[in-house]
């Protein structure tokens, strides 16, 4: 893996949220490292509160004011994003790196037409105007397969369905041909039929625009559709990372196994129960020493309560942070 192949490299990223009193510190992201190759699609999987969205927001540097990156590096094309000025970040955002948010119904300003909101990044970054701008906008609207784009551009967000809006959000996100697209739960707010359509669209866009994509999701189905590799996060850390097939077929971390087991597969039918993981995710402001999954782990050993397990490589690209893995 030569360095030229790597678009984004995150090294030991730590993003903490400071409470209002300044005392309570929530370790939302706690030492996350990974690399994203050009043209690759990486999934970040985890429950809510596992730090997957915070990781994404840290990369975009659009964290809420209470959250701060306190350590690590984020190298984008070899340049550390964390040392860039606000103005330099603005030039990258929207042009070289972009993002799709979870809920399309609230991603667009309700008081402006979708057309004017699509035009904004094109004017700002590509300095387009007049006929060139109009042409580009129509092109983008057909790229996300929106029929009669001229009429749609004049409409307001509340006049459109969720699926339509997410397409437009997608069109805005890719409007300046970014290298990196982060999709944060892109289909969670959509109806199941529309979900599938949007995943198709995302796939088409990725392949035609040569995008590198990070998909943040809690849904293994979405990950299986789109991703080359996935990393599973728990309590602000990566617990397992590997090619999607490997993770599906040979999960090594007990948390990954539990997540996969909780996907309904039809055998629950009639039992009236879905499989779930016992217990609650830990309080990120008061993490116990050792493995944060230990209190919920079915195969816990005494060492888990004491020491945080390091990364154990189990195959070429497959690694898991678990003492059980080291034993086997």
């Amino acid at each position: 893996m030569g360095n030229g192949d790597i678009l984004l490299q995150v090294k030991d990223l730590k993003t903490y949220i400071h409470g209002r009193d300044g005392l309570r510190v929530t370790k939302a992201v706690d030492g996350v490292s990974f690399a994203l190759r050009r043209g690759e699609t990486l999934g970040i999987i985890g429950e809510s509160g596992s730090g997957k969205t915070m990781t994404a927001l840290s990369i975009m540097r659009i964290l809420p004011s209470a959250a701060r990156v306190v350590g690590g590096e984020i190298l984008f094309n070899g340049e550390n994003l964390l040392t860039k000025s606000a103005a330099e970040m603005r030039r990258l955002r929207g042009e070289k790196m972009s993002m799709i948010l979870q809920d399309p119904m609230v991603s667009l300003d309700p008081l402006f037409t979708v057309g004017s909101q699509l035009a904004e990044p094109l004017r700002t970054h590509l300095r387009l105007g007049g006929a060139a701008l109009a042409h580009r906008m129509t092109e983008l609207m057909s790229a996300v397969s929106i029929p009669s784009p001229q009429q749609r551009l004049k409409q307001y967000p509340h006049q459109m369905s969720g699926g339509m809006l997410q397409r437009i959000v997608g069109a805005i996100a890719i409007s300046c041909d970014p290298q990196l697209l982060i999709a944060d739960e892109p289909t969670t707010a959509l109806d199941p039929t529309v979900q599938a359509q949007f995943l198709d669209l995302l796939e088409t866009l990725r392949d035609s625009k040569h995008l590198s994509v990070i998909v943040v999701t809690h849904d293994f189905g979405v990950a299986a559709r789109l991703c080359d590799r996935v990393m599973v996060m728990y309590a602000g850390r990566i617990v397992e990372m590997g090619p999607i097939r490997e993770i599906f077929e040979h999960p090594r971390h007990p948390y990954t196994k539990a997540l996969l087991a909780s996907i309904p597969d039809g055998t629950e039918f009639g039992t009236g129960r879905l499989k779930s993981i016992e217990g609650q995710p830990p309080d990120l402001a008061a993490l116990p020493p050792g493995c944060p999954f230990a209190p919920r782990c079915p195969s816990v050993v005494p060492r888990c309560q004491r020491d945080y397990p390091p990364e154990f490589r189990v195959a070429t690209e497959h690694a898991a942070n678990c003492w059980q893995v080291s034993a086997s």
Binding site: I62, R93, L101, V106, S107, D109, P121, A173
Partner: peptide, 16 residues
Amino acid sequence: LDADYVKFLRVKGLHE
């Protein structure tokens, strides 16, 4: 300023 659409405006790289 806390709304999602403002977050998305920031994603677009617009000036604060």
